[in-house]
Simulated scan of single mutants.
Amino acid sequence: MIISVPATSANLGPGFDCLGLSLDFRNQFSITPSNFSSIQIIGEGEGLAKFLVDNMFVKIFKKTLLDFGIQGNEFRFLFKNKIPVSRGMGSSSAVIVGAISSAYHFAKKEIDKQSILNDALIYESHPDNITPAVYGGFNVCVVDRKKVYHLKQEIPQIFKAVMVVPNRSISTKYSRQTLPKRYSVSDSVFNISRSSMMSMAFAQGKWDVLTLASRDKFHQDRRMKQFPVLFAVQKIALANGALMSTLSGSGSSFFNMCYADDAQKLANIFEKKFSNFRVFVLGFDNQGVMIEEE
């Protein structure tokens, strides 16, 4: 079987741990029954021994099969990875969702996306990446009693994402340690108002308010100070047609949303200004995890 999972961008400025969307940029996982286990990686992560020796996909896939009462099988795993590793584009969420979905399919269980999402929460406690990885689109996510509740809005294809991917990572674990344990009432109201407005903007198609709605006082500036060039990325994006420009997850990638007609121009500016960074012009994904071939 072949299952694919899209890249994601989470937080989206003020939506810390609760807003995320899906990008049309997929990791593809191919699994074939075999007489012995083997792992081959093509693309991102290729040649890194740690992904061959202690592979998260394989561990979660076999653990989920064991939960279904299936054990003792061997497989040939082929991973074709497009999503940059440790750059805030949901590479870990793609692995988690892909592994669980693959186990469901192999066990001949219905691909119940809600169950897959709740199972994914075991491995990723923040739902803002795993939810769009499962469902696609723009998502508002809430966790209550070990269950994810979400509302999805499809993203029109008149938009593109211009992703700027720096040549270094920002550790999610370390960057969380730089965040305060408490926030002021004024900062909290600031973020609640912006994240609420962003949700309504996606629901009602009020795209002109996205620049205002994507401002944040919880995490972005603190994380970007670890890599100050990101402030320049955001400034250039907003000055050249981006409707919103936000740190993707905990970084270091930057997510920029614009009309499709403006995307290549913005990408060209980024490529000229930041020649050592990668720049991707991507569509938005409204499907989430998919079975591509059986």
Rank of each mutant, 00 (worst) to 15 (best):
P6D: 01
A10V: 00
G13R: 06
L19S: 07
S22L: 06
D24K: 10
Q28R: 10
Q28N: 06
P33K: 14
N35M: 04
I42F: 11
G43P: 13
G45I: 02
M56P: 00
I60P: 03
K63C: 01
D67E: 14
I70E: 08
F77M: 04
L78M: 12
F79L: 06
N81Q: 02
S86V: 04
M89F: 15
G90F: 15
S91I: 08
V97G: 07
V97I: 14
I100S: 08
A103L: 11
A103G: 13
F106D: 09
I116G: 05
I116L: 06
L117F: 10
D119Q: 11
A120T: 06
V143R: 13
D144Y: 14
D144S: 08
D144N: 07
K147T: 05
L151Q: 12
E154Y: 07
P156I: 05
S184A: 12
V185L: 14
R194Q: 11
A201E: 11
G205S: 07
L210H: 01
L210G: 00
L212P: 00
H219L: 00
Q220T: 03
R222W: 00
Q226R: 02
F231S: 05
L238A: 01
G241P: 00
A242H: 02
S253Y: 09
F254L: 12
F254G: 02
K265R: 14
A267H: 09
K273P: 11
S275N: 15
N276E: 15
V279H: 08
N286D: 01
Q287K: 04
